[in-house]
Every structure is written in C-alpha cells, then in structure tokens.
C-alpha cells in the first residue's frame, strides 16, 4: 500500500515541480512584491480604502458582468437558432461569426472607434438624421461594445455544440404536456444549456476582467483595473501597487467564478 503511494508520489512529482515553478512561485513572488512598497502589505487594503482603486475594481466587475450576460444572451439565442435552422449560407454565417477570434484587442478597439468614434459610422448617421453627433467609443459604452464583440465568437461555438446535444424529444414532451414556447425555453432549453453557459460565461467573464488592448486603444482614461495596473506600473513606476492590484484582479476573478460555479453546481449535478 505504502509502496503504491510512493510510486504514485514519484509519478506526480514532475507535474508538482512544474506547477510549483511556473504557477505557485510566480504567484507568491507577485504577492510579495505587492507588499514591498513603502506601506508594506497595507497596499492590499488600499484597493478597498482608496476610492480611485475601489471604483476601478467595481467598474471592472460591472463591465465584466454586463459583458458576460449580454454575450450569453446573444450567443444563446443565435447559437440555438443557427443550430436549429439550416438555411442557405448557414455554414458561412457561422464561420463569419468566428472570424474575429484571432483579432487582438487593439484591432477590436480600432473597429469600435470606426463605428462609434468621432469620425465613426454611428456618429455620421446620427449627424445626418438628427444634426447631432453621437460618440461613445472612448467611454465604458465603447469598451462594453468592443468586449461583447470580442466575446461572442468565443462563446457561440460552445453554445452551438451544447444545443446540438439537446434531445428534441424532451421539448416535444414538454409541449405535449401543455407547455408554451416560453415555458419550453425556460424549463427545457435553458437548463439543458446550463453547463455550456457556465463554461462559456466563465471564459467570457475572466477575459473581460483582464482585457487590456481594447481599453488601451480606446482611451487611457478608461477606469478599468488592467488600465490602472498599467498606469501604476509604467507611468508612476509603482511596482508594488501594480503587483498588489494584479494579485487582487486575479483573486477576485477566481472568487467570482468559484461562487458562480458553486451556485450552479447543484443544479448542474442534478442535470446529470
């Protein structure tokens, strides 16, 4: 028995070393640097006590949450639709939806500016129609739009794959029992897609929490945590604060995802 566990331990050792060297040690180092400034580990408290940092954390969380919800709604509806309705050009449309996958955040930001910036399409149309220019590229609204655009291709394939596995007979059974279209959606389709929503939503949320390129392209004044970290690091040369904020960004994201998974976990398990 003990020989067996010794053997298992030996087999696990390479993975353990790898994990230690490339995950735990850098994380510990980051955490330590975060406490190396003149206030020491009190830097971590500044995230809550400093109004500026705290508001940027809150707006980042709000932005990521909004992005995730909006993306899931869009991907959920269009993913199920594209899976269920085969029409000429269906395959082309699906591949086009995934076209932006390779775009870096900078390109997305550039596209947001072209759409809703000072010389943007929306502004021109609004100018023509109402005589007033609408410009929202350089704000949270522009960032939100860019993030949703960035996230939809990353979630839609997961949703489509899950929609394909739904048994249409279950929906028919619900209808035979008198369920309206909406009840079928809420009682059968959404519960069936739940695992896919959680998986896709987690990636979407984490990406939106940490995304930097789009925000950097749109404006340096946008108050999201990755931008604050960049500013602290490069402009203020405040390594400790940047490290502390980075650590918190990672920890908060991890915590939110863990809570979401646990909250959904019981029902996911029940869905078998």
């Amino acid at each position: 028995m003990s020989r067996e566990s010794a053997r298992l331990f030996a087999l696990l050792l390479p993975a353990g070393v790898f994990f230690l060297a490339f995950f735990l040690l850098p994380l510990a180092r980051l955490f330590a640097i975060g406490g190396s400034g003149k206030e020491g580990f009190a830097a971590y408290a500044a995230i809550v006590s400093d109004a500026n940092y705290f508001s940027s954390l809150m707006s980042t969380l709000a932005l990521a949450a909004m992005t995730t919800i909006t993306t899931l709604v869009i991907s959920g509806i269009s993913g199920v639709f594209l899976q269920r309705h085969k029409f000429p050009g269906n395959a082309l449309l699906v591949s086009m939806l995934t076209f932006p996958l390779a775009f870096p955040g900078v390109v997305i930001g550039f596209m947001v500016i072209m759409l809703s910036g000072r010389q943007g399409l929306i502004g021109d149309i609004a100018m023509y129609l109402t005589g007033e220019k609408i410009v929202f590229a350089y704000s949270m609204a522009g960032l939100f739009m860019g993030y949703v655009y960035f996230s939809v291709p990353r979630t839609i394939l997961t949703i489509m794959a899950a929609a394909e596995k739904l048994d249409p007979r279950i929906e028919e059974a619900a209808r035979s029992l008198g369920a309206s279209t909406w009840r079928v959606v809420f009682d059968v389709i959404l519960p069936g897609l739940k695992p896919a929503f959680i998986a896709a939503g987690a990636i979407c949320f984490a990406t939106a929490m940490g995304a930097f390129g789009t925000a950097f392209t749109l404006a340096t004044r946008i108050n999201v945590l990755p931008m604050v970290i960049y500013t602290e690091f490069t402009l203020q040369a405040n390594m400790a604060m940047a490290a502390a904020l980075s650590f918190v960004l990672g920890a908060v994201t991890w915590l939110v995802l863990a809570i979401a998974r646990t909250a959904a976990g019981s029902t996911v398990a029940a869905a078998g």
Binding site: D167, R169, I170, E172, A173, S176, G178
Partner: peptide
Amino acid sequence: QPIEQRNVGMVFQSYALFPN
C-alpha cells in the same frame, strides 16, 4: 392546433424525461 393545445399524452422511445 399545435400539440400544446391538443391535450394528448406522449411517450417516446428515448423516454424524454426532464433531466433537471
């Protein structure tokens, strides 16, 4: 009339029970 208004019971080969 769609099936939801016909009030007929259905039983399928794959059972089609609600897993949740």
